[in-house]
Amino acid sequence: MTIMNLLISALSQGMIYVPMALGVFIAFRVLNMPDLTIDGSFVVGMCVCAVVTIAGHPGLALLCGALAGALAGLCTGILQTKLRINPILSGILTMTGLYTINFMVLGGQSNLYLQKTALNSAGVETQVACDTLYKSFRAFLVDVTGNKRLDANLSAVLLTGIIVIAVLAVLAVFFYTRPGMAIRATGDNEEMVRSSSINADRARVTGIMLSNALVALSGALLRQQQRYDELNFGSGMLVVGLASVIIGQVFFGKRSVTLGLISAMFGSLIYRVILQFAYKIDMPSYAVKLLSAVIVVIALTLPLIRRLIRDRRAEKEETA
């Protein structure tokens, strides 16, 4: 595999996880709240998308997946604000409950292939692959360019890229509208939001719903691209998202919310490139989660280490 192919493959994965990174950014950086629902809402996005795709509506499937994520967020939000349950526990409760929901969405099984029964030319019933957005988009590109050997990864990157950029643009605008600003302020100083006569609970719940809808959208996109699902797929998603957000911050700093969103996007892409190279040097795929956890730990301790070094140096200068 050439470097170019490697990069395209990394990007096609990375793009899919961008909405999730944006969702994690909204939960952790904007709302300033660790939300563990994310692990569950990723899978709910996958499962709902699978069912609707098989029913023959691949476009609607993405939307439904995202909406299902928003509902999961609504649940966590209500637990947190109306029932006053600790935020971390609220997320864990929803995530745990979602496992059953996801199982039920898949019709009481833990895997569902994106295929449907159809009659072949001989009039015999066979299983054929369902249409997905990726398949249709590639067919469309092949039609337009006339290139029959178009790389599936490349067309996938393009499609996901278009969706991701659109989502990012809408979010960037949203956070400067009044409801968007209320969400940012709620994460910054909730008391001030209340004393400005804004329903902070509502702002918080909206933020959590938005965050989980984005995470579920990632799940839905992944589901259409990779065509299989796995109920445990979501575990550790939160850490992956957090790693992306933190990597992005290393490159872009943390200034405005727009820059934060853009940096989360690039963080997600860079993270996948790192993973691809790790695979290239024969890292086994089960090592991914440990790698993500280590990246997050290192990134989070960097400021502390930097301060220690600075103090040490200052001390040396004083004694010298």
Binding site: R178, M181, A182, R184, A185, D188, N189, E191, M192, V193, S195, S196, S197, I198
Partner: peptide, 20 residues
């Protein structure tokens, strides 16, 4: 610290209070 949002700009703080 109680009356203002530290990570938002002065203008955004005023705009939020003015939302009423």
């Amino acid at each position: 610290m109680r009356g203002t949002a530290p990570h938002m700009t002065i203008e955004e703080n005023l705009a939020l209070a003015y939302t009423r």
